[in-house]
Design a protein around this nucleic acid. Structure first.
Lengths: 246, 246
DNA sequence: CGCTAGCTTGAAACCGGTCAACTTTTGTGG
DNA sequence: CCACAAAAGTTGACCGGTTTCAAGCTAGCG
């Protein structure tokens, strides 16, 4: 289950309550023009849980599935351990992004989720959401869309790309996702280790190090520890193009 | 759109109509104990289309999305062309399997689908299905499950596995899926070329050839053109284990 | 037939992994 | 605040699996 480190259901603040701005559902539902009573119904299904400390698990592989969640602040990494005991990182989730969607079919989480920094989540009880969705077609629609999106995402890194292409795609993707959140797209801090990046991109940690160096030597980026500055976004995007399919 | 090579809506044959046995929805809905009138509602959303000839496209990347489909007979390959113009095969679909699920979020098909042999499909209008799902929670549930399943599948080949592991996983997967359909699991015919397999497994066609030979020399399988016989299922499964995560 | 697409085989090059040594950073307790 | 240990990151040398390139083979079909 989604471990409630410190459950803090949001208070209903009268008529002018507002959705948690990070939640993927809020925008969609507001757009659909639902009346307030319906919005309130959705609203009460949401609870904010956390903060989770760095390294703290949100759920583990095999845990019974009962809720999906949106990252409200912080970063989450999902991973599984492969046959050799090595970690396979499946994804990094920034504020506004949903975790747990792949658990629906099995009724169990198929992977582990861990906070990479202090993290707060919005938790949605899935059964309740599904029930509500039968009465709110817009919500059902949005849920279908979210699920379908993730199918496409997973295919991204499945191709056989070079280390450079993978890394470029990784940086461009992060940059864009930060931009959506209102953060500067050319300057951000990595919340994951080099090893995490390597396990995500299916490279050796040493390769990640080498590519970072080469990118810096070529003037594409500036790297200082976890601090990244993208100096030539265009060039990086060109490298990433084949992976991101544009 | 799903091109109707020769639309053949199934006739409503009175009280004892039956679902197309390959459709993923029928079993779920029957289990859920819906009454006949509701089943009939679902029934009329289904139409059989085809046959599509070998090489004929079912939909193309960018086509407007309006329906998902289940393979009724035959085999379908989905693919995209990457930046270098090379084909990236995303999946092979056997009878009973659903295609088009990843199109929901974009309202456009994100890939091409082509028949590898004479193929007949069950077509489901997605908007109609979604509308019906609001009145049939079991159907909604099933749709969520199908979507969620596909998220997990895509991650399968994302790891960095050896050519042997990939090929073993591919053969084991095919074997099991044929078995479910009632075909002998140790003896089947590949409906795709070596190049297709290579593009799916992210290997060079030459590597596919070499692995087949090695597997045969080691007594794991017998290969004759497209005919495959699995001689040592256990050994093959052992090889595939790391990919299939068991 | 003979053409073509699909397939196989061999040799060489290369990318990224592994191993090993080292440096830097982080965190902890005295 | 410093000392020390552990974790994270970097760098170089070497190795091996896959790809690439090139050539030839085979089956299927006009």
């Amino acid at each position: 289950m989604l471990r409630s480190a410190r459950p803090t259901p949001i208070a209903d603040d009268g008529d002018d309550f507002h959705f948690c701005s990070t939640c993927a559902f809020s925008a969609a539902c507001l757009e659909s023009g639902y009346d307030k009573s319906q919005l309130r119904e959705l609203h009460v299904l949401v609870e904010h849980i956390g903060p989770f400390a760095e390294g703290e698990h949100i759920f583990r592989e095999g845990d019974a599935f009962n809720a999906i969640a949106a990252v409200r602040s912080g970063t989450v990494k999902t991973y599984v351990n492969d046959a050799n005991g090595r970690e396979q990182v499946q994804g990094f989730f920034l504020p506004g992004e949903m975790i747990g969607l792949s658990a629906i079919s099995q009724a169990r989480y198929p992977c582990n989720a861990v906070a990479l920094e202090p993290t707060v989540l919005c938790r949605f009880s899935f059964p309740s959401m599904a029930a509500l969705a039968t009465r709110m077609p817009g919500l059902q629609q949005q849920m279908f869309r979210l699920l379908s999106q993730d199918i496409g995402k997973a295919a991204l890194l499945a191709g056989n790309y070079t280390a450079d292409e993978r890394m470029a795609a990784f940086l461009v993707s992060l940059s864009r996702r930060y931009a959506v959140r209102g953060f500067p797209p050319t300057r951000f801090t990595l919340s994951m280790t080099r090893t995490d990046i390597a396990n995500y991109l299916r490279l050796a940690a040493e390769s990640v190090s080498r590519v970072f160096r080469r990118f810096q030597d070529d003037g594409l980026i500036r790297v200082d520890r976890r601090e990244i500055e993208i100096l030539q976004p265009r060039a990086l995007e060109a490298l990433a193009r084949s992976v991101l399919r544009e």
